[in-house]
Design a protein around this nucleic acid. Structure first.
Lengths: 202, 202
DNA sequence: ATTCAAGATTGCATAGTCTGCATTTTTGCG
DNA sequence: CGCAAAAATGCAGACTATGCAATCTTGAAT
């Protein structure tokens, strides 16, 4: 992350990363499936925590509310680790594609999230929800397995998860561009207010 | 697309594509920035058509409704070109990552869409909305330019665009996995009903 | 018909990503 | 201390991607 912040993401080679980390380039690929992953994997545990929080949320909340609060907590924790995340944000700000992947791919794991939502409203597949909920998002998965998990899911849980993740992404992107003018908390709240209202003309 | 449907996307090399197309590999890269792009670029004009439709929609529709209808039309047109799109769908079904990119990156061009929404509700930046609305999504753009466009946009238009695109993606993914059981039209309608209702517990 | 310039295509060289395989090093434990 | 599992490494090879210079096409002006 330090290298990327200094030289720009696209100029950081695997060799450079490996050398800076004191390992061989080959070893890098034992831990990351691709070069980009190393810029995106930050905070991979968030996914699991959010899932758990969704399951443990008060029973009177709607799934969207539960998801909103779970993600809010996660984002707050992120603000603490200033060091790493300042660099991370700096790097991603210059690379929109990576930003999308970072938020989309990890804080999310949409399918896993959808399973949590499904279990919460009792519409999920008991086959998957419990054991799968704890699996790390670092594990790679074949397209076939993902498809199998998707098949068991209803449209609604899938939609809540996907839209929730999207909302967070939009909130973060919107705030990133105007850090000085507004507080993230406000952007975040407003975003989910729009959503819960069904996105009527404002 | 034919090669990918037959052998699986990841086994189709640039050399193979180029040879099948009767050009050199070098020429391939004169037209596509990356190997993946060739699997994603299908229907790149959709983006512009959707934007236009959003602008031209009846005044009594909410932005979300306008977007919903615009996308519905687009998806219907897609169903016509059975040949190409059957292959395309087949290819993308085996590669979730490409599916996301295909829908996310092109039918969308979220920022462009957000500009259309912004102009529609009169909250956009007059600097960009008119001339930018016609620019092809095939053109690549620097991170700086994208950031500049984002800065001029409000949170709400950005959110409607992103959520709309996400909704379509979820609808398509959900339907792809159960093509035999349900009609796409129904999935699509239900998806946007959930959205417009604010995603309450069903 | 000839010529010429712009554009398209190509080959070649080079940098970088990623994988498989065999080998060496490290680690943990009996 | 010694051994077996796990981690790390080196190396070869396939593939993606870019810059540059040379060649080929095309179409318009003469």
């Amino acid at each position: 992350m330090r290298l990327a912040a200094a030289n720009g993401v696209e100029h950081v080679t695997v060799d450079a990363i490996s050398e800076a980390a004191g390992v061989s380039a080959r070893t890098f690929f034992n831990y990351f499936d691709s070069r980009d992953e190393v810029f995106v994997m930050v905070g991979a545990e968030s996914s699991a925590r959010v899932r758990r929080a969704v399951l443990d949320a008060p029973g009177d909340q709607t799934p969207l509310e539960a998801l909103r609060d779970a993600m809010a907590v996660e984002l707050q924790e992120i603000e603490q680790q200033q060091e790493l995340w300042r660099l991370h944000a700096e790097v991603l700000r210059r690379s929109p594609e990576l930003l999308a992947r970072s938020l989309g791919a990890h804080m999310s794991d949409e399918v896993g999230l959808a399973e949590a939502v499904a279990e919460r409203i009792g519409a999920g597949s008991p086959l998957f929800s419990s054991d799968r909920a704890s699996h790390s998002s670092a594990e790679t998965e074949t397209g076939a397995e993902t498809e199998e998990r998707r098949r068991a899911l209803g449209l609604y849980p899938r939609l809540v998860a996907a839209v929730g993740v999207t909302a967070v992404r939009v909130a973060v992107e919107h705030w990133c561009v105007r850090q000085d003018e507004i507080a993230f908390t406000d952007v975040f709240r407003e975003t989910f207010e729009h959503l819960a209202a069904g996105l009527p003309t404002p």
